[in-house]
């Protein structure tokens, strides 16, 4: 072994972590090599110094603050978002995979209000009151606060005011998914209505050919289509394969609605998506959301064991109560 090899071993030698034979070889070399001995001296001073690095205790309120954070992040809406897990796979950078799949998960982009109704409007008895869609990214708490304020501000027929029960709710949440798994949409504020009208925008995905090798232009358009930022490096055929994979997993919306005693009252194409209007018994809302949440089962094996996969997903949900 020459000096270069020895220097590679000096850290483990200094901490007595080498196998006995190797340890003896290094010790033998050191006897006759001043340069390596000098390096060993530096290594030992280095360990001496970092060994003096004291421990830093967490703040006294760490436990309480963490538990509060857990409760806060386990709110129903976040749990729904969390159910939509991000797949990863070998050969795809984690960030890119997360981002790409989060984009593909736009299969459940639920963005009705902005398409069906612009702005808030008064509700007459028997009519549907609609609130603005909250478009800007904000926290769930902030969204709730805004929506409650808006609901209160809508004058209804007969000068009644909506008070505690929201006639409509609308969420728009753009969040970093990271690896949050857990959650379901908030339905606690939907009260006293017989039916709810829910509009879903289910993104239609293009047919993909797994074996096709895409040109750069096709790749680019695919990225644009799936919403993956240009910075995300994702091969064309890989992207297609991914999209196909998720497409096959998309639950049949009709079946989901029927199973929850709902009816699809209308649908129309909008861009790449199909907008469904669904009438649903109020008491089925929770179950319906849970059915949607089954998309959470799409996570790749072992995905939950990993962390650090980051992607953005935008989810708009409007629940309209009739009165």
């Amino acid at each position: 072994m020459d000096c270069r090899d020895i220097m590679e071993l000096l850290h483990d030698f200094a901490r007595k972590r080498l196998e006995p034979t190797l340890h003896r070889q290094v010790a033998e070399h050191l006897k006759n090599c001043p340069a390596c001995r000098e390096e060993l001296r530096r290594v030992r001073r280095y360990y001496d110094a970092i060994g003096r690095e004291g421990a830093v205790p967490p703040p006294p309120d760490f436990l309480d603050a963490t538990m509060n954070r857990i409760r806060r992040k386990s709110s129903p809406l976040r749990r729904l978002l969390g159910m939509i897990a991000l797949p990863t796979g070998p050969g795809i950078p984690l960030g890119a995979a997360g981002l790409a799949v989060a984009s593909v998960i736009a299969v459940f982009l639920i963005r009705p209000a902005v398409l069906f109704h612009e702005g808030s409007r008064p509700a007459a008895p028997g009519q549907v009151a609609v609130l603005d869609t909250v478009k800007e990214p904000m926290s769930v708490h902030r969204i709730r606060r805004v929506l409650r304020t808006r609901a209160d501000s809508i004058p209804s027929a007969g000068q009644e005011r909506a008070t505690d029960s929201l006639l409509a709710k609308s969420y728009s949440l753009r969040t970093q998914m990271k690896d949050e798994v857990g959650a379901t949409a908030n339905d606690e504020a939907v009260t006293a209505q017989d039916t709810m009208e829910i509009a879903l925008n289910v993104l239609t995905l293009p047919a993909g050919d797994e074996s096709a090798v895409r040109s750069r232009d096709e790749e680019k358009s695919l990225r644009e289509f799936s919403g993956v930022p240009p910075s995300a490096v994702l091969g064309g055929s890989t992207a297609t394969r991914r999209i196909e994979h998720w497409k096959q997993k998309i639950p049949d919306i009709g079946a989901v609605v029927t199973s929850q005693q709902g009816t699809i009252t209308g649908s129309r194409q909008s861009g790449n998506g199909t907008i469904y209007q669904i009438l649903l018994p109020r008491e089925q809302y929770g179950a319906f959301i849970r059915e949607l949440g089954k998309i959470g089962n799409l996570k790749s094996p072992g995905a939950a064991d990993r962390t650090g996969k980051v992607g953005a997903i935008e989810l708009n949900l409007t629940i309209q109560g009739t009165r």
Binding site: F62, A65, R69, I70, D179, E180, V181, D305
Partner: peptide, 24 residues
Amino acid sequence: DYDDANDCAQETFVKIYRHLHTFK
């Protein structure tokens, strides 16, 4: 950084809470 460490440590436990059921 102390504040960053506090934030990351809390976030770590949030993730542990969410994923502990998957720990094999």
